[in-house]
Design a protein around this nucleic acid. Structure first.
Lengths: 339, 339
DNA sequence: CTGTTAGCGCTTTCAA
DNA sequence: TTGAAAGCGCTAACAG
């Protein structure tokens, strides 16, 4: 195993240099891939480094190279079942490209400006944002020259690079299937009004229903189970719908639970419920939600690729990439697929 | 709004000093709480800083103070429903104490040593580990003088500071309740054999059953839904049990789904199923898992407090804190509570 | 290929 | 209370 380091302070490249009988800059080179170092010199250096437990100080090198190899990931509500997978994927992909992840989560009461201040202090090379930031806050990234990619958000004021799920096509497919199967009384359970994806799903579904000559009642939730159930009860108070389109799977599940428990409805016998995202629990036997799955792998891959491009070549145009989903036919809705 | 910074390179304390008509060290002091700066000098400096969009470079200050204000959080499988909440809580609590989070997730195939190398390079002030590291890997933290707190793990070889859920008392209470309610044929769905909490739950449940004069068949899963369902099918192949103790809620749900779908059993009529953790979906109407809830808030609070103590005062004894859970009475099991 | 040298942006004595 | 000066550990020309 590695020998004890000088107990207390951390080992520097000078320590390694002394032990290997070379200059400090030789040590620096030995750790830079593609630097010109004689093979046996490098071996001697690496042996010395290993013996001392030396690891290059990324803090110090970042100071001079102006590359921290740090990417900020800013996520609002990790408790949304959909985000853990996204975070895990992003982290792994960034890691594979030599970047470390500085994680920022936003509590409901948290001060976003304080958080951004920390982002600036750490001189991150870039950021991936899956949280609602104001236009002014978003503008700071541009002002400071920090590349940023929005995830399932778009820049309202100035255009910003972003990766988004195209809920529209999925919403239309779901609506078409529900209409073809003979549903007549539609209800939509939306997300908070300031949620980009939530609104898009509501808009697209409503528009497509309109196209078919139907309209829908709308109730809003907060993307969690309880709010889905509550929204369904509220809707039911003015008459039971025969089809519910929820803006995400968890609210769809909440609605199913309420329909069964509070109203004794059979799903999908009496009521069809569809959702969005394709989270794990949506496939569980008791729910089997018919939903539109987001291609999380492809989306996170794109987000990281776009970020890295912008870090390596500043001044790229603010591309916006859209990803269509795939209908996951569950058992929570009677759907007639018009192929 | 803030004026444009010098377009391109980032603003330094020298820029601020020049604009405020003071020395660079005055700027440095102005940003250190409790440093001796005249109030009006500080105001001038802050005004200049704001105008230039200056944020102190944490990378540079870390180099000299030897405090990066970075804490590594190392988590193995974020997709385990239980971890996102833990991660969110840890991040917020660390943030409240002026620490930033450097996140490391472990993919199944990922090289732990490479990951640790990155941890060392960033000179983190400390780490919270919710992943299985080898004794040798754990030992490196001590060798390098990096404080570490284990989360739901313990140090096998050398003692390490840790925060753990005491599954034992919960397991015993569950078993007592199941036995009192008249169950006779017990099965346990455990986690992977190398999971600390998983094993503790299995051991405690088996021991308590033994104490009551029962034994239990054991099948192992991987903490996910599919493995819970599979384990139940495997158990059922050698006879249907009348009580299943699963090492976590998600496997309990998997077992319930399999029992209902594959064997037409009523839960809890024909079969009682209990779990551990108290994750959100466990309370959903279709499952309502009777479980032992981990006190995540108190545990994350303790983990962060212990870490900060060790960062601020090195050389503390390796305390181990245990937290008991609370039985959440659902509707997935017939339980007679012997108060 | 290797060593020398000059900083990166900041904190911290030490004098004034 | 303030400024000057010396680094923190490293990278990056530039000579040799």
């Amino acid at each position: 195993m590695s020998a004890k380091p000088p107990a207390g302070s951390s080992v520097t490249s000078y320590d390694v240099a002394r032990r290997a009988g070379v200059s400090q800059s030789a040590v620096s080179r030995a750790f830079r891939p593609g630097a010109s170092v004689a093979p046996d010199t490098r071996d001697r250096i690496m042996a010395a480094a290993r013996a001392l437990g030396y690891a290059p100080n990324a803090i110090a090198s970042g100071l001079i190279t102006k590359r921290s190899h740090l990417a900020a990931i800013i996520i609002s509500n990790l408790t949304n079942l959909y985000y853990p997978e996204v975070l895990a994927e992003l982290t792994q992909r960034l890691s594979a490209r030599g970047m470390r992840v500085l994680l920022f989560t936003l509590a409901a009461e948290s001060d976003v400006d304080d958080m951004l201040d920390q982002v600036w202090r750490y001189r991150v090379d870039g950021a991936i944002v899956a949280a609602r930031l104001s236009d002014a806050q978003l503008a700071q990234f541009a002002d400071r020259g920090v590349p940023v990619v929005l995830y399932n958000r778009i820049g309202d004021a100035a255009p910003v690079a972003s990766v988004c799920f195209d809920s529209g096509s999925g919403a239309r497919a779901l609506v078409d299937g529900l209409v073809a199967a003979g549903h007549r009384d539609f209800a939509i359970i939306g997300g908070p009004a300031d949620s980009y994806v939530g609104e898009e799903r509501v808009r697209a579904a409503a528009a497509r229903l309109g196209h078919h000559g139907f309209d829908a009642r709308l109730e809003r939730g907060t993307f969690d189970h309880a709010s889905g159930a509550l929204a369904f009860r509220t809707l039911a108070a003015t008459g039971l719908p025969d089809a519910v389109i929820a803006a995400n799977d968890v609210m769809a599940i909440g609605a199913i639970d309420s329909a069964r428990r509070d109203f004794g409805l059979a799903v999908p016998g009496d009521l069809s419920v569809v959702g969005f995202d394709g989270v794990g629990p949506a496939t569980w036997h008791a729910y089997q939600v018919t939903t539109v799955r987001q291609p999380v792998r492809r989306m996170t891959d794109a987000a990281v690729a776009m970020l890295m491009e912008r870090i390596e070549t500043p001044g790229q145009t603010p591309e916006q990439r859209l990803f269509a989903g795939e209908i996951l036919t569950g058992a929570s809705a009677r759907l007639k697929v018009t192929a």
